[in-house]
Design a binder for these strands. Structure first.
Lengths: 263, 263
DNA sequence: TCTTCCCCTCAACATGAGGTTGAGGGTGGG
DNA sequence: CCCACCCTCAACCTCATGTTGAGGGGAAGA
């Protein structure tokens, strides 16, 4: 008895239904009618799906779900391989003045304010180690004015950043002190500002980080629950690794997403 | 008459019509009705479009034309949408990921004001897949089985990852081929799995990256608009820098968020 | 002012993508 | 030979994405 290597449409359905809950028989047939599939047939007309057909179907469903591609486009991509860029012949006669700054490799913002406590020599560049999680929170502390100066940003902007919760100072005595991370954030923000980005746009990073952090926390929760110090150290280590993994994943996903924007 | 900085809907129309021949007044109004735009109004109710509104509109039209995104999705990406996905015990997905080497963090104690490094030259070394946005069409391609083997994961898991859109292959001939990023992602995912994380939990990275990418794309849009190659290269460079800044910011925010979990 | 565009809203209509449903009828294995 | 499964085909449905038109107000030059 020859291993029947193909499946009926109903079998395909139940195979894929977990992965794609909204697939139906009629949808599969519809996809064929649109030329996206072309399964063999038995003499009596039943569709025979082999592995490649199933892969193809899976891919189609995925493009629909993940990339929202219209069937027409999916079909083109299945046939014509990589995109055949449709050329557009258009002039661009009007050089529109854009507000966006088109930043050059801008010169580093000059560090005004010499009067800065340059204590705290640092090193913290654990490459993809994900930034020392365990380093004391306050290797350095700066007043608001010092922070502004070190970041090369006007005081007002610092206030903005604080308003959106991107940096947080601790009130100490009569002024507020900021730690190293605040400085890091301020400088990074300065980088963004050169592109015309505003503080409020950066809030997404905070929200995202909070979610990511609480996700990580769930993961290491079992360790944290044991109160013993070894487990605790282990938890910190794990968090560092998770952070690094997350960094890598974010990078890969970001590259992928940017690539699809036809650059 | 004080330099009117805004345009009427009709002026916007004629501005964009070359670039997007099928834009119409009613379409613009429709986009507003769907919440994708929200121009100011004059006291008498006329819409006032400023430069950012126009950029936003342009971006929307581009996403429609180039990436076929539904308006709902465009809207979500513009504003950090509700990417639902009920969680069972994990934090709700949607985080931007990346712990960063914090580019240039140090409060440099010296006077050497030099141009900043602009972009790290990391090659993809470990699973921590670093940067190259402009690296050509992926140098490697693996079959599904090879991918599984290289990542040290069962084939089934690859399917899972694919199911959540974390990796994507292209069907070629009888099997599907995967690029280098797929391998990177698979390895990183393997790292997560060791902590008991499941594929579906990683979806948040994808969603977040898409949002971040579309944010970056808007920032760089003025450059992309000019069709000339120098501007294009500049755009790619800028994207790389933005990605690096984002990485740093994600790292800083993540550290901060984790610290608050009293570790 | 008057005239002529341009703009506003709101509701009804249009169109196409992406399927679904049902009638009517074969297929096949227990 | 029965019942679950499969087939086709046409009609129908829903949703996204706009379009059109009626009815009416604002802006600006002659």
């Amino acid at each position: 008895m020859a291993e029947r290597a193909h499946m009926s449409i109903g079998e395909v359905l139940s195979l894929l239904q977990q992965e794609f809950p909204d697939v139906t028989i009629s949808k599969i047939r519809f996809l064929e009618s649109q030329g996206l599939l072309d399964p063999e047939r038995t003499p009596s007309g039943y569709r025979k799906f082999y592995e490649p057909d199933i892969e193809r179907l899976r891919w189609i469903l995925m493009q629909q779900r993940e990339n929202f591609l219209p069937l027409r486009v999916i079909k083109d991509r299945l046939e014509g391989g990589p995109d055949a860029e449709p050329l557009d012949l258009e002039g661009d006669p009007s050089a529109v003045a854009s507000t966006a700054p088109a930043p050059e490799p801008a010169p580093e913002p000059e560090p005004k304010a010499e009067a800065r406590p340059s204590r705290a020599d640092r090193k913290s560049q654990a490459p993809s180690g994900g930034g020392a999680l365990d380093s004391g929170p306050t290797a350095i502390s700066l007043t608001r004015v010092e922070l502004a100066a070190s970041a090369g940003l006007p005081d007002k902007i610092i206030t903005e950043l604080e308003r959106y919760g991107l940096i947080t100072g601790r009130p100490m005595g009569r002024d507020t002190l900021y730690d190293e991370d605040a400085l890091v954030v301020a400088r990074l923000a300065a980088g963004f500002f050169r592109y015309g980005v505003e503080a409020r746009h950066l809030r997404m990073y905070k929200v995202a980080a909070e979610r990511e952090a609480s996700f990580f926390e769930q993961v290491v929760l079992p360790l944290v629950k044991q109160r013993n110090p070894a487990a605790r150290r282990q938890a910190v280590d794990n968090l560092a690794e998770l952070a690094a993994l997350g960094e890598g994943l974010r990078g890969a996903m970001l590259r992928n997403a940017l690539r699809s924007y036809s650059l």
